[in-house]
Simulated scan of single mutants.
Amino acid sequence: MSGHTKENLPGEDRSKWIISRAYDLSWFIAPGFLAVLIAFISHQLDFPKDIGLGSGRTDGKALPPWLWLLLIPGVDVSHVYSTLFRAYWDKEVWNRKKTLLTLTPLFCFVFALILYSFGKLVFWSAVAYLAVFHFIRQQYGFLALYSRKEEGSSNLSLLWDKVTLYAVTILPVVYWHLTPDTRRFEWFMEGDFFYFPNELLAKSVHVLFWIWLLGYAISQIYYLLNEKQISLGKILLITNTSLVWYIGIVYLNDDFAFTLTNVINHGIPYIALVFAYSSFRRKNLPSVFYSAFQKGILALLPFVLILIILAFSEEWLWDSFVWREHSDLFGNKSVIRSELGLGFEFILVPLFFLPQFTHYILDGFLWKGGEDNRELRGFLGFQKLDP
């Protein structure tokens, strides 16, 4: 076990924040608020026009190339590869969880092959719902950390926080399912959700969303008036999450707003969390990474560069052999013209989706702070590690 202790962790004021006040506000909270602000301004300026890009994979050709590169390879796909630092490149974690880290990709690939055998739409529908669950669970994970750091919080208040987090994320998705004719975006591709149009029920869900938020706000004011300390990080996270899911899905109702808010609020906080974790665990990383993380924040450049290279490489494969949409960006016109991969999508799609699928599954195990995750509990400040 590494010799790091709670006092060695990056940042300060660990009692109420995951890393530190400045770090949390800058990297876990601000990205969502900033994305919502940009989405509002862009909507007023009508930019970009007539786009058709969901949070994963729809008609990417409709986005300006620079924006597509920034949002998809730059953030969305890059955050997937940060799992390498969290697990596969951490020697101690690899040795302790070798079975999990080895079998998960194998399971994901076989399962994806089986899914795709039922058809393209079945595959993308299944992974769309898995992605929705994954996106929600990440916000739940951040909330759980802030709630546990809230002094004097009872089990009932923790439950109320968690149920509220699920409400402000699931209700907009339910509204989406009930209003397919008015939604101008998809998650991965057209038809990947099962829709149940019902205008009256949709209005009821809309009203319930705001009633729930109001009820939660009143409850937090009540806790505060009773001299109980409330975690500012928790309140900001709930507010952030509510805005991102409501504005991106219900209010602005355009694909750019949905993509921007969803991708930024999900990808950047995760990358920032893994970067902080990797800095804490640097002695367990390969020497080349250990040397980089000894330089503190300067390690961010090589860290991000590695993620972008891996993400760009994956997107090159997708574009060359499956989507064939961005030849000007990837310089792969000759590969596309050769029509390599045609007829082999049944194996190429599950193969290329493997990093993302593996990330979805591993995330459910790697970030749980149980006793078998002592290095994580130490990183989060819940446990002092042995020297």
Rank of each mutant, 00 (worst) to 15 (best):
F111T: 09
Y270K: 05
S117A: 14
T5A: 12
L376Q: 11
A167H: 02
I218P: 08
Y223F: 09
S279W: 03
H134W: 09
G370K: 08
L63C: 01
I249T: 14
P73T: 08
T182C: 02
H206L: 13
P269F: 06
F280W: 05
K295S: 15
V127G: 01
N284A: 08
F196M: 10
K61D: 12
N265V: 04
F275T: 07
F303W: 07
Q138F: 05
F47R: 12
A292F: 02
G296N: 06
L307Y: 02
R21P: 07
I336E: 13
G152Y: 03
G32P: 08
D50H: 11
A311Q: 03
Y251H: 15
H43W: 12
A112L: 08
L380V: 11
T169V: 05
L310H: 04
I268F: 10
E339Y: 08
F135R: 07
S287N: 09
I211E: 04
S20D: 07
K203E: 14
F365R: 02
V335F: 08
L366S: 13
R337Y: 12
A292G: 00
D181G: 15
F346V: 08
E371M: 12
W66Q: 09
I264F: 07
D46N: 15
V132A: 03
L158Y: 06
H206T: 01
I18S: 07
S287Q: 11
S291F: 05
W66I: 13
V263I: 14
D59L: 10
L285M: 11
A257M: 04
P387F: 10
Y251M: 13
L243W: 00
F33W: 05
A126Q: 04
L100W: 05
Q138P: 04
D90P: 04
D90V: 03
D319L: 06
S55M: 15
K6L: 13
R14E: 02
A276M: 04
Q139G: 13
V205R: 04
I136K: 01
S320C: 03
A39R: 05
